[in-house]
Structures are given as C-alpha cells and as structure tokens.
Simulated assay, not measured.
Amino acid sequence: MNARSSYSCFSCFHLFFLVVLALFRLCSSDQNSHHVLCNDVERQALLRFKHGLTDESQRLASWVAENKDCCTWAGIACDNSTGHVHRIHLPGSDGHCDILYDGVTLKGEISQSLLDLKHLKHLDLSCNDFGGIQVPKFIGSFQNLRYLNLSYSNFGGSICRSLGG
C-alpha cells in the first residue's frame, strides 16, 4: 500500500466520522431545543377552566399564568410538533373510583372555554365530584374527541344525543 492510498482511506474515514458526528449533534440538539410551547389561546382556555374549579388538593398548582408552557402542566399532554393540547387527564381519587379520598377530587363547573381546545382528543374527569350539575351540553361539540370519561363524577341528567355522532 502506497502513501497516497493510505492518505485517501484516512481522509475518507475522517470525512465519514465528521458526517456522523454532525448528524448526531443535529439530532440531539433538535430534540432538546426544539420544544414547542403550548398554544396561547389554549393556555388561556385551560386557565379559565381551572378558574371554575375547586381544587382542594392543589392538583392544578402547576396551572399558573406565569408558566407559559401548559404542556408541562399536571394532567395535560400536547402534540410535540404543534403544541396543541390533545389530552386532559384529571381523574380524581388517583383514578380509584371505588375508594373515596377526601380532598382529592375536583369540584365546580366545567367551563365552556374547553371548546377552544380544537385538537382535544382525550378528556378524563372521572372520579371527581361535580355536585350533581348537568353534563355540559357543549361536551358533544368537540370535533376531535375520541375518549371521554366522566364516570363516577357526580354529574346529573343525561349526556347529550349529539355525543359520538
């Protein structure tokens, strides 16, 4: 093997190594710095929703206006690429509906502001205590809702006919 072919292989190896290193750096920085914050309209809708609730156990303590990223709030999940809220998962009593834990349930009113969550697919408010209020009629208006759980949450009345239609 002469010096010229040895130099050529050495250069190809270094070039390959630099390309792999650059790709690794690009991918790792993309995952860490490309976090999309939640949509501001949706963040405001969640704050209005919280305002109508009584939360004696402080489960929603992370839901504050100062925290601009509602995707990091307890019980909220967002689409990683768009930042739209797609999941509200707030079952009371730690999801154990057969056991009543004092103060671990949400109470109050369900705000119509939730309709501003146009991409909501999952809503779980099970095992809470809404004091016998009527199931809100607007619940049937969510276009993308695929999962709804209001069981054992002390709602009165019937669920609107448009739900699931």
Results as ranks from 00 to 15, higher is better:
G132R: 09
P91W: 00
E42H: 05
G156H: 10
N2Q: 07
D55L: 01
N154E: 14
S29G: 11
R25D: 07
G165E: 15
G83R: 00
G164T: 11
A22V: 09
Y152I: 11
L123C: 06
S111D: 12
H35W: 10
E109I: 07
S29V: 15
L37V: 11
S29T: 15
D40V: 15
W73K: 00
H14P: 04
L163A: 12
G92S: 07
V85A: 00
G165S: 15
R146H: 14
G92H: 04
F13M: 08
P91Y: 04
Q44R: 14
C12F: 11
K107L: 02
L47P: 03
I88H: 02
L60S: 01
V20E: 01
F13Y: 11
V85D: 02
K121G: 05
G103K: 01
H14Q: 09
N67W: 01
T54G: 07
S29A: 13
G52L: 12
E42A: 00
A22R: 05
G164Q: 13
I139T: 13
N149G: 14
F24H: 13
N149V: 14
C38K: 10
L106I: 01
E42G: 00
A77V: 04
Y101T: 08
A22Y: 06
S111K: 03
D102F: 07
A74I: 08
D124H: 06
Y152T: 13
C160I: 11
S5M: 05
T82S: 10
S93E: 09
G140Q: 12
H122T: 08
C78H: 03
V135N: 05
L60V: 01
W63L: 01
F10T: 08
C27M: 10
S29N: 14
L23H: 10
L23C: 11
D94H: 14
L23P: 05
V104K: 09
H122I: 05
S28R: 15
